[in-house]
């Protein structure tokens, strides 16, 4: 965990990896609609900044190498793997994490559909799945099954719940289309 804190006193964040003891750099970006300004270690990943720095623990670390998709977030409108991005690369970016999907404690349609369709078992892949699905639905509210599969191909689910996940994304699209009418 945050071993660095004892060495260097309280900090706005610390990385599980390393305190590079490099001069801190100033990062300013939008996270879930709020502007964030922080002095950060230039060597930490965006994933670690979100988790350790901002305590947004919804975004998960699975493989740490861009294979599993558990760390998927939306950055500037695009689904990306937060484990392969340095926090400094997010300068001025608009970021949405799974915490940004609900409003006022109310689950979004997408989240409610995941719940009602049993589209999760252990739940570890769920935040990443939700963000890949959200990015897809932001591009199109009429996705085909192959498009849904393509959008979540980079999100591994070891409980093998893909069918209900695809169904939940599809029914969300339908509900959001109706809501828009």
């Amino acid at each position: 965990m945050c071993e660095n804190q004892s060495q260097h006193g309280p900090q706005e964040h610390c990385s599980t990896y390393i305190d590079s003891q490099q001069p801190r750099v100033f990062l300013s970006c939008w996270v879930n609609g709020e502007i964030i300004s922080a002095q950060i270690d230039p060597m930490i990943t965006l994933l670690n900044f979100l988790r350790q720095g901002l305590k947004l623990l919804g975004t998960k670390e699975g493989c740490g190498e861009g294979e599993c998709g558990a760390c998927t977030i939306i950055m500037n409108g695009e689904a990306v793997n937060a484990c392969l991005i340095l926090a400094v690369e997010a300068q001025d970016a608009e970021i949405t994490t799974v915490e940004g999907l609900s409003t006022g404690g109310q689950l979004s349609i997408l989240q409610s559909e995941f719940v009602s369709q049993d589209a999760l078992q252990c739940g570890f892949c769920t935040p990443g799945m939700l963000m890949s699905a959200r990015a897809l639905l932001d591009r199109t509210l009429d996705p085909t099954d192959p498009e849904i599969k393509e959008a979540i191909a980079g999100n591994l689910c070891r409980c093998t719940g893909y069918s209900p996940i695809i169904a939940a994304i599809s029914s969300t699209a339908k509900k959001e289309r109706e809501e828009r009418k």
């Binding site: 861009g66 998709g69 689904a79 990306v80 793997n81 991005i85 890949s132 990015a135 393509e150 191909a153």
Partner: peptide, 9 residues
């Protein structure tokens, strides 16, 4: 090539 997320980067 790879996954949608990776292709975005």
């Amino acid at each position: 090539l790879a996954s949608y997320q990776l292709r975005n980067r």
